[in-house]
Amino acid sequence: MNENVNVLLKLFLEYLQIERNYSQYTIEYYQHDISEFAEIMKEQGITELKDVKYSDVRLFLTTLFERKLARKSVARKISSLRSLYKFLLREKLVTENPFSHISIPKIEKRLPDFFYEEEMSNLFKACEGTEPIDLRNKAILELLYATGIRVSECSQLRLSEVDLFLSTILVHGKGKKDRYVPFGSFAHDALERYIKDGRNKLITKQSSHDYVFVNYRGGPLTTRGIRVILDKIIEKSSLSGTIHPHMLRHTFATHLLNNGADMRTVQELLGHAFLSSTQIYTHVTNEYLKKTYMTHHPRA
């Protein structure tokens, strides 16, 4: 990328971080998508973002499909670049958005992956232990399952935002939207034990801070670090397959709906701006009901 593109990209990423409050993980995706686009444009002799036309975008999409990228990946890249140009238009750094008339490929809707209650029990058993790291890992798993918070929200959680007396946490969600989320007795006990015992043994004078979850050196635990921890938990359990942090968020929502929670409450707990984002879980619960019926009804 030339110097001018780098400057515009830096401005846009700062906007995502400061104004939109996006996680570092999400920002990295935007950076990768935009850098890739700039390189492909450079191969066509276009070095300025303001010089990109609709026909150039069509050529970019052709290149992506020739690479046999999944529709989901192509849709994400289009969304990233459309957002970039909307920002540049707002700042009057370009005169048009060449992505404004580009349609996002339809993505096949997949039901969210989630754990059954028996599988969650296996994961909790894999966290048992008395070492500070064990206490931390158990607290992370209990909190993610108890609240359905995003991993980025978990890593940014501070001690002042945890109320053990009321069993609630203050969560800073996407778009600077705050919400209070309650948690149950299992998460309460795991958090209390970790904060009062495990965390104190991991933290040092040199690494003093108020983030709840810390790494083995005492520094703040990153979202990537939490993903590594979850991978290790599933390796220790008797479960096969992989785990991704959002599975615990999906599991939280699915188990609530399976046990009679209403959609609006789940929407609020998850921090979804739109009910449509939460409605995907009704399909999961319907599948669950059907499977239960087929398994247990004598005339199924």
Rank of each mutant, 00 (worst) to 15 (best):
E3Q: 14
L8M: 14
L9H: 08
L9S: 11
L11V: 00
Q17H: 14
Q17D: 15
I18Q: 04
S23H: 05
Q24A: 12
Q24K: 13
Y25W: 02
E28I: 01
Y30A: 05
Q31K: 15
H32I: 04
I34M: 11
E39S: 14
I40Q: 11
K42G: 15
Q44W: 09
K50I: 06
V52E: 06
Y54P: 00
D56V: 02
R58V: 02
F60N: 03
T62Y: 04
E66M: 09
K68A: 13
A70Y: 15
R76T: 12
I78V: 14
S83P: 03
K86L: 13
L93N: 08
E96S: 15
F99H: 00
S100E: 13
S103D: 10
S103V: 06
I104S: 14
P105Q: 04
I107T: 11
E108D: 10
E118N: 14
M120T: 12
S121H: 08
G129Y: 05
R136I: 01
A139R: 13
E142M: 08
E142F: 10
L144T: 02
Y145Q: 10
R150Y: 12
C154K: 00
L157N: 13
L159E: 11
V162K: 03
S167I: 01
S167Q: 15
T168D: 00
L170W: 10
L170V: 09
L170Y: 08
H172P: 00
K174G: 04
K176I: 01
K177M: 05
Y180A: 05
Y180K: 11
G184F: 10
G184D: 14
F186K: 12
F186Q: 13
Y194N: 02
D197R: 09
R199V: 09
K201G: 05
S207Y: 06
H209G: 14
N215L: 06
G218F: 07
G218Q: 06
P220D: 03
T223V: 10
R224E: 04
D231E: 15
D231S: 12
K232D: 12
S240L: 03
T242D: 15
I243S: 11
P245M: 03
M247K: 12
L248G: 10
L248Y: 11
T251A: 03
T254E: 08
N258Q: 15
N259V: 06
M263L: 15
E268S: 13
L269T: 02
I280V: 15
H283T: 02
H283P: 06
V284H: 07
Y288L: 09
K290D: 06
T295H: 11
H296L: 12
R299I: 04
A300K: 13
A300Q: 12
